[in-house]
């Protein structure tokens, strides 16, 4: 019998058997995302960038503790946490509204990991680590709005959806957190957080929607 056929419950936690399991951290889009051009030839109208290696924590106020949670966020980030659908840029984190009395903390490098946040929010909020539970896709380009309009009923016109606007919404029947980041090279940047297990499905839908405009696909470790 090969070692891989040993039932999990019989594996002892010491000795060599544990080492035979390999837990690779990889993106839920690892298989689907192919960097480079896609769709129509010529100048790409849509740019898709998957952001890797981020820390994402869900912060959710306990019963009757929303005020204390906001105060704890202020102490931690020196910024007012969002109480309406918007994304707030703090010095080294983005706080994104995700529902009433809750928000997401997006950051890098472990500074605001769930372990780092725990003490500050003790008693006021429940925290849940979402770092490996979501994929983060950044959408920009001349045709970004036209492409997103096929998937979303949110009005993304600049006069309505300005920098810092956010929405908890659905695209192609998939729940997403959508927000507009800082402009890059004079162009709007739309960020999408999608549940890991739905990411590949939504990715294919995004590619189908974007193909006619020409797409450039890449990775980044930088938060948009």
């Amino acid at each position: 019998m090969s070692s891989s056929a040993i039932p999990y419950s019989t594996i002892r936690m010491e000795g060599a058997s544990v080492a035979e399991f390999s837990w690779d951290i990889r993106s839920p889009l690892d298989r689907a995302l192919v960097a480079g051009p896609y769709g129509a030839q010529g100048k790409a109208g849509v740019s898709l960038t998957e952001i890797h290696n981020f820390d994402l924590a869900q912060v959710m106020a306990r019963r009757g503790k929303a005020g204390e949670m906001i105060a704890a966020a202020k102490a931690r980030f020196s910024a007012a946490a969002p109480e309406t659908p918007r994304a707030v840029s703090a010095a080294d984190a983005t706080l994104i509204w995700s529902g009433p009395d809750q928000f997401l903390v997006l950051s890098k490098g472990g500074k605001h990991s769930i372990e780092a946040l725990a003490a500050g929010f003790a008693g006021s909020a429940s925290l849940s680590d979402q770092s490996h539970a979501r994929a983060l896709i950044s959408v920009s380009g001349d045709k970004a709005r036209a492409m997103l309009a096929k998937l979303s009923s949110i009005d993304l016109h600049p006069s309505v959806f300005a920098v810092g606007a956010a929405a908890a919404t659905s695209m192609d029947h998939t729940s997403v957190t959508l927000w507009r980041g800082k402009d890059r090279d004079g162009q709007a940047v739309f960020n999408l957080l999608v549940f890991a297990t739905f990411a590949e499905s939504l990715w294919h839908t995004i590619l189908d929607s974007a193909a006619e405009y020409g797409v450039t696909i890449g990775h980044s470790d930088e938060l948009a």
Binding site: A61, G64, P100, D101
Partner: peptide, 12 residues
Amino acid sequence: AAAGAGAAKVGA
């Protein structure tokens, strides 16, 4: 909002 939405106390 229904009673208890977000962090609101039910009935509050």
